[in-house]
Design a binder for these strands. Structure first.
Length: 208
DNA sequence: ACAGTGATGTGCT
DNA sequence: GCACATCACTGTA
Protein backbone atom coordinates (compact mmCIF):
# COMPACT_ATOMS: atom_id res chain seq x y z
CA UNK A 1 0.00 0.00 0.00
CA UNK A 2 1.41 3.41 -0.92
CA UNK A 3 1.49 5.73 2.02
CA UNK A 4 -1.12 8.44 1.85
CA UNK A 5 0.62 11.68 0.99
CA UNK A 6 -0.03 14.56 3.33
CA UNK A 7 0.16 17.84 1.43
CA UNK A 8 2.86 20.21 2.61
CA UNK A 9 1.96 23.75 3.70
CA UNK A 10 2.52 26.18 0.86
CA UNK A 11 5.73 28.19 1.14
CA UNK A 12 6.04 31.92 0.45
CA UNK A 13 7.79 31.31 -2.87
CA UNK A 14 4.56 29.76 -4.18
CA UNK A 15 2.99 33.24 -4.24
CA UNK A 16 5.66 35.03 -6.23
CA UNK A 17 3.60 35.12 -9.44
CA UNK A 18 0.43 36.56 -10.96
CA UNK A 19 -2.27 36.67 -8.26
CA UNK A 20 -4.92 35.60 -10.78
CA UNK A 21 -3.07 32.36 -11.47
CA UNK A 22 -2.24 31.87 -7.82
CA UNK A 23 -5.92 32.22 -6.88
CA UNK A 24 -7.00 29.75 -9.53
CA UNK A 25 -4.48 27.15 -8.37
CA UNK A 26 -5.33 27.68 -4.72
CA UNK A 27 -9.07 27.09 -5.11
CA UNK A 28 -10.15 23.86 -3.42
CA UNK A 29 -7.20 23.96 -1.05
CA UNK A 30 -7.34 24.34 2.70
CA UNK A 31 -6.86 27.11 5.24
CA UNK A 32 -5.68 25.77 8.60
CA UNK A 33 -5.45 27.54 11.92
CA UNK A 34 -4.16 25.96 15.12
CA UNK A 35 -5.33 27.61 18.32
CA UNK A 36 -3.01 28.24 21.28
CA UNK A 37 -4.71 25.26 22.92
CA UNK A 38 -3.64 23.08 20.01
CA UNK A 39 -7.07 22.74 18.46
CA UNK A 40 -7.14 22.58 14.71
CA UNK A 41 -9.64 24.71 12.77
CA UNK A 42 -9.80 24.38 9.03
CA UNK A 43 -11.86 25.10 5.97
CA UNK A 44 -11.86 24.44 2.26
CA UNK A 45 -11.07 27.43 0.08
CA UNK A 46 -14.24 27.90 -1.96
CA UNK A 47 -14.07 31.58 -2.93
CA UNK A 48 -10.97 33.61 -3.83
CA UNK A 49 -10.30 36.91 -5.57
CA UNK A 50 -7.19 38.39 -7.12
CA UNK A 51 -6.06 41.99 -6.80
CA UNK A 52 -3.25 43.11 -9.07
CA UNK A 53 -2.75 46.76 -8.39
CA UNK A 54 -0.61 48.01 -11.26
CA UNK A 55 -3.23 46.99 -13.86
CA UNK A 56 -6.30 46.82 -11.63
CA UNK A 57 -8.90 49.63 -11.52
CA UNK A 58 -10.52 47.99 -8.49
CA UNK A 59 -7.35 48.11 -6.46
CA UNK A 60 -7.48 51.36 -4.56
CA UNK A 61 -4.18 50.51 -2.94
CA UNK A 62 -2.44 51.08 -6.23
CA UNK A 63 -4.07 54.43 -6.93
CA UNK A 64 -4.11 56.39 -3.72
CA UNK A 65 -3.86 54.31 -0.58
CA UNK A 66 -0.15 54.91 -0.28
CA UNK A 67 0.24 53.39 3.15
CA UNK A 68 -1.90 50.38 2.40
CA UNK A 69 -0.18 49.96 -0.91
CA UNK A 70 3.12 49.77 0.92
CA UNK A 71 1.63 47.19 3.25
CA UNK A 72 0.59 45.09 0.29
CA UNK A 73 3.87 45.53 -1.56
CA UNK A 74 5.78 43.33 0.83
CA UNK A 75 7.66 40.21 -0.22
CA UNK A 76 5.47 37.44 -1.66
CA UNK A 77 3.72 34.94 0.56
CA UNK A 78 2.92 37.11 3.56
CA UNK A 79 -0.37 37.31 5.44
CA UNK A 80 -2.09 40.66 4.99
CA UNK A 81 -5.26 42.26 6.28
CA UNK A 82 -7.11 44.73 4.12
CA UNK A 83 -9.57 46.84 6.09
CA UNK A 84 -12.98 47.47 4.58
CA UNK A 85 -15.83 49.12 6.48
CA UNK A 86 -13.92 48.51 9.66
CA UNK A 87 -13.56 44.79 9.04
CA UNK A 88 -10.32 42.82 8.50
CA UNK A 89 -10.07 40.79 5.28
CA UNK A 90 -7.44 38.06 5.00
CA UNK A 91 -5.07 38.11 2.04
CA UNK A 92 -1.76 36.72 0.86
CA UNK A 93 0.74 38.99 -0.85
CA UNK A 94 1.80 38.07 -4.37
CA UNK A 95 4.43 39.12 -6.91
CA UNK A 96 7.81 40.51 -5.99
CA UNK A 97 8.55 42.90 -3.20
CA UNK A 98 7.64 46.46 -4.15
CA UNK A 99 4.55 45.49 -6.18
CA UNK A 100 1.12 45.58 -4.53
CA UNK A 101 -0.76 42.40 -5.48
CA UNK A 102 -2.65 39.82 -3.47
CA UNK A 103 -5.14 36.99 -3.23
CA UNK A 104 -8.18 37.65 -1.05
CA UNK A 105 -9.79 34.74 0.78
CA UNK A 106 -13.53 35.44 0.57
CA UNK A 107 -15.12 32.24 1.88
CA UNK A 108 -14.27 28.82 3.27
CA UNK A 109 -16.28 25.66 3.84
CA UNK A 110 -15.81 24.70 7.50
CA UNK A 111 -14.14 21.29 7.92
CA UNK A 112 -12.53 20.94 11.34
CA UNK A 113 -13.28 22.69 14.62
CA UNK A 114 -16.72 24.00 13.73
CA UNK A 115 -17.71 24.11 17.40
CA UNK A 116 -14.76 26.29 18.23
CA UNK A 117 -15.52 28.57 15.31
CA UNK A 118 -19.03 29.01 16.64
CA UNK A 119 -17.49 30.09 19.95
CA UNK A 120 -15.45 32.73 18.19
CA UNK A 121 -18.37 33.84 16.07
CA UNK A 122 -21.84 32.77 17.23
CA UNK A 123 -24.39 32.64 14.43
CA UNK A 124 -27.95 31.42 14.23
CA UNK A 125 -27.55 29.75 10.88
CA UNK A 126 -24.38 27.70 10.56
CA UNK A 127 -24.35 28.58 6.88
CA UNK A 128 -23.36 32.12 7.80
CA UNK A 129 -20.30 31.05 9.77
CA UNK A 130 -17.58 31.57 7.19
CA UNK A 131 -19.29 32.71 3.98
CA UNK A 132 -17.69 36.14 3.85
CA UNK A 133 -14.14 37.51 3.93
CA UNK A 134 -14.40 39.09 7.38
CA UNK A 135 -16.66 36.38 8.74
CA UNK A 136 -13.98 33.73 8.32
CA UNK A 137 -11.41 35.94 10.02
CA UNK A 138 -13.65 36.21 13.05
CA UNK A 139 -14.67 32.55 13.01
CA UNK A 140 -11.05 31.44 13.03
CA UNK A 141 -10.24 33.83 15.87
CA UNK A 142 -7.42 35.50 13.97
CA UNK A 143 -5.59 38.44 15.50
CA UNK A 144 -4.52 40.71 12.62
CA UNK A 145 -1.97 42.64 14.66
CA UNK A 146 -0.23 39.39 15.48
CA UNK A 147 -0.31 37.94 11.97
CA UNK A 148 0.00 40.77 9.46
CA UNK A 149 3.27 40.75 7.56
CA UNK A 150 4.36 37.28 8.64
CA UNK A 151 5.04 34.41 6.20
CA UNK A 152 2.13 32.20 5.15
CA UNK A 153 3.76 29.04 6.47
CA UNK A 154 3.25 29.77 10.13
CA UNK A 155 2.81 26.75 12.42
CA UNK A 156 -0.49 28.18 13.62
CA UNK A 157 -1.83 29.50 10.30
CA UNK A 158 -1.05 28.01 6.90
CA UNK A 159 -2.44 26.94 3.53
CA UNK A 160 -2.59 23.50 1.92
CA UNK A 161 -2.92 23.04 -1.84
CA UNK A 162 -5.80 21.02 -3.26
CA UNK A 163 -4.99 17.30 -3.53
CA UNK A 164 -5.32 17.62 -7.30
CA UNK A 165 -5.90 20.75 -9.37
CA UNK A 166 -9.60 21.53 -9.53
CA UNK A 167 -10.96 20.79 -13.03
CA UNK A 168 -12.20 23.82 -14.96
CA UNK A 169 -15.72 22.37 -14.91
CA UNK A 170 -15.83 22.76 -11.13
CA UNK A 171 -14.56 26.33 -11.16
CA UNK A 172 -16.83 29.31 -11.69
CA UNK A 173 -15.10 32.47 -12.85
CA UNK A 174 -16.93 35.76 -12.32
CA UNK A 175 -16.47 39.43 -11.56
CA UNK A 176 -15.37 40.37 -8.09
CA UNK A 177 -17.80 41.31 -5.33
CA UNK A 178 -18.35 44.67 -3.75
CA UNK A 179 -16.41 46.78 -6.22
CA UNK A 180 -17.50 49.30 -8.84
CA UNK A 181 -14.42 49.66 -10.98
CA UNK A 182 -12.94 46.65 -12.69
CA UNK A 183 -16.19 44.70 -12.97
CA UNK A 184 -15.09 43.45 -16.37
CA UNK A 185 -12.18 41.47 -14.95
CA UNK A 186 -12.89 37.75 -14.31
CA UNK A 187 -10.80 37.55 -11.19
CA UNK A 188 -13.18 35.86 -8.75
CA UNK A 189 -12.94 32.10 -8.44
CA UNK A 190 -15.57 30.00 -6.71
CA UNK A 191 -16.23 26.27 -6.41
CA UNK A 192 -19.25 25.76 -8.63
CA UNK A 193 -22.42 25.02 -6.71
CA UNK A 194 -20.75 25.11 -3.31
CA UNK A 195 -23.24 26.33 -0.69
CA UNK A 196 -20.56 28.08 1.36
CA UNK A 197 -19.66 30.83 -1.10
CA UNK A 198 -20.65 34.30 0.01
CA UNK A 199 -24.33 35.14 -0.49
CA UNK A 200 -23.59 38.81 -1.16
CA UNK A 201 -23.15 38.18 -4.84
CA UNK A 202 -25.11 40.93 -6.57
CA UNK A 203 -24.08 39.86 -10.02
CA UNK A 204 -22.67 36.49 -10.86
CA UNK A 205 -21.97 37.74 -14.33
CA UNK A 206 -19.30 39.95 -15.74
CA UNK A 207 -20.33 43.57 -16.11
CA UNK A 208 -18.80 45.41 -19.06
C1' DA B 1 -12.71 70.14 10.09
C1' DC B 2 -16.09 67.81 7.27
C1' DA B 3 -18.46 65.14 3.81
C1' DG B 4 -18.10 61.10 0.88
C1' DT B 5 -16.63 56.30 -0.37
C1' DG B 6 -15.86 51.46 0.13
C1' DA B 7 -12.50 44.44 -1.30
C1' DT B 8 -18.54 44.28 4.95
C1' DG B 9 -21.60 42.52 8.54
C1' DT B 10 -25.84 42.59 11.10
C1' DG B 11 -30.52 43.08 12.00
C1' DC B 12 -35.10 43.99 10.79
C1' DT B 13 -39.28 44.30 7.57
C1' DG C 1 -34.57 43.19 0.10
C1' DC C 2 -33.18 47.38 2.75
C1' DA C 3 -31.17 50.36 6.37
C1' DC C 4 -27.49 51.22 9.45
C1' DA C 5 -23.18 50.63 12.10
C1' DT C 6 -18.39 51.32 11.22
C1' DC C 7 -13.65 53.25 10.11
C1' DA C 8 -9.50 53.99 7.18
C1' DC C 9 -8.71 56.90 3.84
C1' DT C 10 -9.63 60.59 0.13
C1' DG C 11 -11.01 65.13 -1.67
C1' DT C 12 -12.21 69.65 -0.45
C1' DA C 13 -11.68 73.87 2.56
Amino acid sequence: MPKETVPEPLRPAHFAGDPVEVARRLLGGKLVRVTPEGERLSGRLVELEAYDCPRDPACTAGRFHAARSADMAVAPGRWLFWTAHGHPLLQVSCREEGVAASVLIRAIEPLEGVGRMLDYRPVTRERDLTNGPAKLVYALGLNPAQIAGTPVDRPDLFLLPPGAPLPDAEVEVTARIGIKEGRNLPWRFTVRGNPWVSPAAPSMELMP
